[in-house]
Amino acid sequence: MGGGNHSTVTEFILTGLTEKPELQLLLFLFFLGTYVVTVVGNLGMITLIGLSSQLHTPMYYFLNSLSLIDLCYSTVIIPKMLVNFVTEKNTISYPECMTQLYFFIFFIISEGHMLAVMAYDRYVAICKPLLCNVIMSYQACSWLVVEVCVMGLIGATAHTGCMLRVVFCKVKIINHYFCDVFPLLELSCTSTYINEVVVLCLSLFNILAPTLTILGSYVSIIASILQIHSTEGRSKAFRTCSSHITAVTIFCGSAAFMYLQPSNVSSMDQGKVSSLFYTIIVPMLNPLIYSLRNKDVKVALNKIIEKRLFCISKY
């Protein structure tokens, strides 16, 4: 992702969330705290799943991958964003901008498809429990994660490849807190029709395909749950899915609002607010949602704490 490609712009200026000086320190502290919670939460989830043998199941294998994705793509966005709050002019070079765009798209697409894979896993566990170990074998789970990464790779390569063809020769101020597709296209002094078609087509696929998979899975899950006669059985099945439904709603809703509309219709100020949800809030909330609302995670965490306390007390 070299920096030439007919562009006369060598660097961009990110405007950030606000230009009001009195809000800069407050926002810096808020997003710094958010990032710390995100890193600690996702690293904690990855570590807990790795250490707890009772969590070595397909559900937590996918949750482990989701936590890694959340950790990576929040790291692609937030550190550079924090710099904007403490510097007078937040610049980003052309190669850095294209690199940030590439990895952001890779991880955001991977996140959507990983949520769909997790919904499919819940469908198999609830609707086909006798075949669960066969359908969701370790090899099958590994292939699903590879496919998720391939989808992210294809999307990131297509979007960034098209962006590298765009000529930037006007203003170089990006009205956003990171290098995203639509804010960059606004700076083009050539036709962006092909780029917008690619964005719309890939966004339709990468948002609608996971959404339809999730909806199809949960329609089948709900139908199966309604056939369970015991109240306790129904409650347990709903609890298993509630965390995932919450995460999906926040992520897909905010992403769809940003990308499933023409760039001339979407307001960049509205886009910034929408982007905050899926770039910053979702990676922070996911480990909290899956830990606070998941009995297995709580039990595993308590066992590890008790084990550590026991080891300390021996010495």
Rank of each mutant, 00 (worst) to 15 (best):
C132R: 14
I69E: 01
L25E: 11
I154H: 10
Y60E: 05
I46D: 06
E88C: 04
T34V: 13
F85K: 01
N90Q: 08
G161C: 11
P79W: 11
M81R: 03
Q139S: 12
C127A: 13
L26P: 00
I109Y: 07
G152S: 05
N90R: 07
G155M: 07
P129S: 08
H159P: 00
L51R: 15
I78T: 15
K20M: 07
L27A: 06
G33A: 03
S137T: 11
V39C: 14
G155V: 05
M59L: 13
I69T: 12
F103Q: 02
L115F: 14
L29W: 10
F107E: 03
M59H: 13
C97L: 03
K80P: 02
T99L: 12
L29T: 14
F103S: 02
N90H: 12
F107D: 00
A140H: 09
F85P: 00
M98F: 14
A119W: 01
Y35V: 03
I92Q: 00
I105T: 10
S52E: 13
F104T: 11
A156I: 03
S137W: 02
A158C: 15
N90G: 12
A119Y: 06
C127I: 05
N64W: 10
T47N: 10
M163N: 00
I108D: 06
L131V: 03
M118T: 01
K128C: 09
F85G: 00
L51Y: 13
I154C: 09
V39K: 09
V150R: 09
H113L: 06
Q100G: 08
V39L: 15
L101I: 01
P21A: 10
